[in-house]
């Protein structure tokens, strides 16, 4: 039930935003994430953005995991 998916914020209108989820546009509430900006990826749960994806952290995680995968490959 805590299912929540990342969605790109396309426009912001006060406490609401237009997002795209799997090619479909949807209006969501920004009541819980007033800091949201156009271009952010919101984590959407039951019509509300509950958090904003940290793009830098995502890239950093992927970089570390990628490095590790290479190391394992080389040693294996």
């Amino acid at each position: 039930m805590c299912l929540a998916i990342p969605a790109l914020i396309k426009s912001v209108d006060g406490m609401e935003a237009e997002v795209e989820i799997g090619g479909i546009s949807r209006r969501i509430s920004l009541q819980l994430t007033p800091e949201a900006r156009v271009g952010d990826y919101a984590i959407v749960h039951t019509g509300y953005a509950i958090s904003i994806m940290d793009q830098k952290e995502a890239e950093e995680t992927l970089r570390i995991l990628d490095e590790m995968a290479h190391l394992v490959e080389e040693s294996g």
């Binding site: 998916i5 990342p6 990826y41 992927l62 995991l65 995968a69 394992v72 294996g76």
Partner: peptide, 23 residues
């Protein structure tokens, strides 16, 4: 989809699995 597809990468998954099996 951004933030989803990258985290389904089989390369990253198998790297992690090797790590888990090793440790």
């Amino acid at each position: 989809m951004r933030f989803i597809t990258e985290f389904r990468s089989s390369k990253l998954a198998s790297g992690l699995l090797s790590q888990i099996r090793l440790r």
